[in-house]
Design a protein around this nucleic acid. Sequence first.
DNA 1: CGCCATTACTTTGCCAGGCTATGTATATGC
DNA 2: GCATATACATAGCCTGGCAAAGTAATGGCG
Lengths: 110, 110
Amino acid sequence: MDTRLLMGMVETLILEIVSHSPSYGYEICQTAEERSRGMFELKEGSLYPALHRLERQKLLTSFWEEADNRRRKYYKLTAAGQKALEARRREWHQFSTGVNGILGAAHGTA
Amino acid sequence: MDTRLLMGMVETLILEIVSHSPSYGYEICQTAEERSRGMFELKEGSLYPALHRLERQKLLTSFWEEADNRRRKYYKLTAAGQKALEARRREWHQFSTGVNGILGAAHGTA
DNA sequence: CGCCATTACTTTGCCAGGCTATGTATATGC
DNA sequence: GCATATACATAGCCTGGCAAAGTAATGGCG
């Protein structure tokens, strides 16, 4: 898997995962891996900076919580984050339609 | 359209377009735009360097040709290029499946 | 005939954002 | 005690898309 493909998608995936219920970095990684059936292993060096960017952009807010004797930084979607997620969803849809328009053409590949 | 999404796809799109019949930079741009229905406007600063990379990797070969009083550098797929294209096709399929596994989940979006 | 748009290729340099690697800290198990 | 898993953070590398600028030839228009 060429990780370059992930460019620009990491934030979208985070927004999506957090949109279901607040989550924290370590768990977001695992969720991404599970829900993509092993396709995406978000690396710490991509994940945490992305979370910080999203928070700076006010698409996420964070709060620390103690559970299982673990200190965790939970992130939850803001209203703006919800809107951004919807926009990114549409963007992904357009993008993949565009790619399929090229890759799929004259191949019956669908 | 977040152009970051294109990361890593430009080469694949070029391989695909050239696979039908040899083409040259300017025409590849137009083909990409048409076949993606205006989604992708490959920029010169991405296109030409990508063509050169692909040639260095021996996935494409080039030849100059004069037509319509225009000097054009045509590129055609090599056997290795054909294999690479198939691999990238599969990669794209996996990637988009992975993304849809996350974005599509619990939304019936498909 | 001069000027500009279009076609056509190339290259420089910027910058976003993925990754590796490293560092910190705590809990649990052996 | 020490290794491993959990958990967060950051510095620095490197890829590759983009804007912008340069080169050049063609053809149309006034």
